[in-house]
Structure formats: C-alpha cells, structure tokens
C-alpha cells in the first residue's frame, strides 16, 4: 500500500477514535478506563503512523509508546483512587 494511503487511513482511525472519546463520555462516567485506552490508541497511531516509529530503532519506539501508556496508567490509578 502506498505510504500516503496508509497515512490517510491512520488519520481516519484517529478521527474515529476522537469521536468515540466524546461518545463514551456521553454514555456515562463509568467508562473512564475505556476513554483512557482510546487515548493510548490514538497516541500509538500518531507515534507509529505519523512519526514513523514502526520502522525506527526499538529503543526510541518503546520510549514513545510507553510515554502514553505509562501516563494513561498513572492517570487511571489516580482516578480510580479518588472514587
């Protein structure tokens, strides 16, 4: 598949996920974890798709992917603890 089409697909997925975030929010407050997972998914799409980390050295890819994951986990812990 040409790279340009891949990028457009990646963008479409990002848009869909963004809309999902808002829909999930309207569906109920109990879905915080799902919203965080969607955010991680979007961050990974940007990192692997737009920033081309899927082909980059493993260390840098892991660093970028874990940035969003670890952050979302910590935020999730904070939110769960506050309940």
């Amino acid at each position: 598949m040409p790279v340009s089409r891949l990028l457009i697909l990646c963008w479409a997925a990002l848009v869909t996920l963004s809309v999902c975030t808002v829909l999930l929010a309207h569906a109920g407050a109990s879905l915080s974890i799902a919203i965080l997972l969607v955010a991680v998914g979007k961050a990974w799409l940007i990192a692997d798709g737009f920033m081309e980390l899927r082909r980059a050295p493993r260390l840098w890819r892991r660093l970028m992917l874990s940035w969003a994951l670890v952050l979302a986990m910590l935020v999730g812990v904070a939110l769960v603890l506050s309940r």
Binding site: A39, M51, A68
Partner: peptide, 22 residues
C-alpha cells in the same frame, strides 16, 4: 514535522483528561 506530531501526541492525551474524564 516530527515536532508537530509531538504537539499532536500531547494533545490526544491532554484532551480527554481536561475536557472529558470524570
């Protein structure tokens, strides 16, 4: 271009946290 993507990357985590998550 990478710098721009980083700005995006931050926003996709920031947006749900500030606007959505309760």
């Amino acid at each position: 271009v990478l710098y721009w993507h980083m700005v995006d990357l931050v926003w996709v985590v920031l947006f749900p946290l500030v606007y959505v998550l309760d």
